[in-house]
Design a protein around this nucleic acid. Sequence first.
DNA 1: CTTTAGGTTTAGACGTGACTAAATCAGGGC
DNA 2: GCCCTGATTTAGTCACGTCTAAACCTAAAG
Lengths: 227, 227
Amino acid sequence: MMLSDVMEDYLKAIYQLERGHDDRVKTSAIAEELDVTPPTVTSMLEKLEDRELIDRKKYHGVTLTPEGETVALEVIRHHRLLEAYLTEHLDYDWSEVHDEADRLEHHISEDFEDRVAAALGEPEVDPHGAPIPGADLEPPQQPTGRTLSESAATDRVVVREVADDDPEVLSYLSDHGIEPGVTLEIREVAPFGMFTVMPVGDERAEAVSLPSEVARHIRVGEEVPAE
Amino acid sequence: MMLSDVMEDYLKAIYQLERGHDDRVKTSAIAEELDVTPPTVTSMLEKLEDRELIDRKKYHGVTLTPEGETVALEVIRHHRLLEAYLTEHLDYDWSEVHDEADRLEHHISEDFEDRVAAALGEPEVDPHGAPIPGADLEPPQQPTGRTLSESAATDRVVVREVADDDPEVLSYLSDHGIEPGVTLEIREVAPFGMFTVMPVGDERAEAVSLPSEVARHIRVGEEVPAE
DNA sequence: CTTTAGGTTTAGACGTGACTAAATCAGGGC
DNA sequence: GCCCTGATTTAGTCACGTCTAAACCTAAAG
Ligand SMILES: [Mn+2]
Ligand SMILES: [Mn+2]
Ligand SMILES: [Mn+2]
Ligand SMILES: [Mn+2]
């Protein structure tokens, strides 16, 4: 089955929207995600349905079939391995890798995928902390923990994942010491959802305030006691 | 100017056919090179002419404009840098890199190009011995020397470039000790154009016979006296 | 139960890059 | 100098992925 890169992007988008708890994914959600109009999405969904990559109920959204999910996971594996490779071996900053990976993900061979994975030592997470699907293309388990925006003042939390693709936001965060693995002390939660946090362990760190749109994309977990 | 990857492939093909001494490049030559039908080529040439990337005289072929040549050189730089990177850093054999590079060349950013070039130390040739255009995109000078098929028996020559893309042929050649840098002793030139050569300096090397189609793609130069 | 607003699909169009079949041109042979 | 063969272009078609405008369905509000 030969799929265009556009089809791959639709399947990836549907997968990610499904994980976002919209268990049936709506036309308008896909249109927004991929920045196309709803009629465009409808016609693409018809093609994906013909190929049995999605289940569709007219007017009531779609879900991926197992085959569709496998394709999506393959694309996501490519994407995240590329992001990891670019930061590890080509000196990219984590804020810069997304767009490059988003184009290349459709054009690398399975051989390339294997070699990149080997060069990295079969990594389990990408530079943003997102899990990289294994070569078996089983769905990685849903990340545990909560988002920063669901946390309370005075909590101490560890950043697990920063699920944002905007380079501006990402480089702002890393400039202020926020990246996966860092411990944060939550100083204040303002009523309009502004979180003020303080990276722990860095002498020169200062408190940073993050609006809820940003806090919502930061997944955090419990602080793990030093082993 | 936004160019599709298909347009880039046409410009690259025209560039390479121009270097092959067809100073005006014919529709049929491009069709053959890119494995499409002549009417397909004609309609693409009309588009490239509209964008002033080629000069076209109906029924009499095309030449690249300076702008078209720059695009072609950019694509070729991508291609050859990728080939070099894949062999140097991802453990590919020189016989395997062509197809991978041929797809990726259209999808990497200028930033990626720069980082790959830096990681390789601004290399001047790709793994097949072909010159890599510089970042300035000036045309590299035409390679000097002659092809193996233009050489005579008893000559000792150094392989400069193996200008073949077929992985089967390339891995056959490297299995028999023939790759850029190797010195060959020409043992025999059969009347039907079969060249029998012997790699010098490798104990276990045996003589290899190469038909003229293969010998024509091997560029050789004078043996350089050890410095 | 009816209305209506908003989301979805249908209808019709367009540009790209490919094809086949048919018309046309150019250059070599006579 | 005319003819013919082969290369090239024209003409018409198709699949893809996108769009806008219009029709249609659903579900929530009244
Ligand atoms: Mn993509
Ligand atoms: Mn990522
Ligand atoms: Mn290519
Ligand atoms: Mn090469």
